[in-house]
């Protein structure tokens, strides 16, 4: 089994549905420590992505990830636009010309995407951001790729969920929540939550179809 361009499309379709469903929840999380627009922004961004990619033929990962990246960058006027945009863009650039890769190769490309996010946000693990969900997931995917795709994806989802929950006790060091200082402690980061959803949707599309 491998990871295909069609799985990317399916993952994004699933993420669109899930974000729509969780929009209010994400907005609630964001109103506690951010500016209460994350759910609305992601919902708009994903809708635009789906409009762009639905029915379009893609011969490689480069094309679909680039479309997703450019669309979310044009549609979302919050940090999620440039950050998720960069994540998609870097993955696409790494996998350009390919339409099917192993989970290990995908993990390497996702690491590129993660590095792009860290550079753009001048941020790392432990700052209470999306990185806290994505970084452990990518690591789990890479380290468990030899155990089969399902096992690797399941471990990646568990790692992302733990990472997301791990943001609750953290002191925010990035974004609007960082202005709150100690008062940011005790709240789950909305960006990490969306990132957990993203990893889950990639898992579901890859394993369940």
């Amino acid at each position: 089994m491998a990871f295909t361009v069609e799985m990317v499309r399916l993952s994004l379709e699933k993420l669109n549905v899930l974000i729509e469903e969780k929009r209010e929840y994400l907005t609630d999380l964001d109103s506690a420590i951010g500016d209460a627009d994350h759910g609305i922004n992601m919902n708009r961004g994903m809708k635009h992505i789906i409009e762009k990619i639905r029915g379009k033929e893609y011969s490689d990962f480069g094309g679909i990830f680039r479309d997703a990246a450019m669309t979310i960058m044009s549609a979302v006027g919050g940090s999620a636009g440039p950050l998720f945009g960069t994540f998609f863009m870097k993955i696409g650039q790494k996998l350009i010309g390919k339409s099917e890769v192993s989970i290990e190769e995908l993990a390497v490309a996702m690491q590129d995407g993660l590095d792009g996010i860290m550079f753009l946000g001048r941020s790392g693990v432990g700052d209470k951001t999306m990185i806290d969900a994505i970084a452990p997931a990518v690591e789990a995917l890479r380290e468990n790729s030899s155990d089969g795709d399902s096992a690797a994806w399941n471990k990646a989802v568990i790692a992302a969920e733990l990472g997301m929950k791990g943001t609750i006790p953290m002191l925010s060091r990035r974004g609007r929540s960082s202005y709150l200082g100690e008062r940011s402690i005790g709240h789950q980061d909305p960006g990490a939550t969306t990132s957990y959803y993203l990893i889950s949707c990639f898992r579901d599309a890859s394993v369940e179809g």
Partner: peptide, 12 residues
Amino acid sequence: NDTGGLGITAQK
């Protein structure tokens, strides 16, 4: 943004 709210996109 396009809906009259706050925020700016990379594309703009």
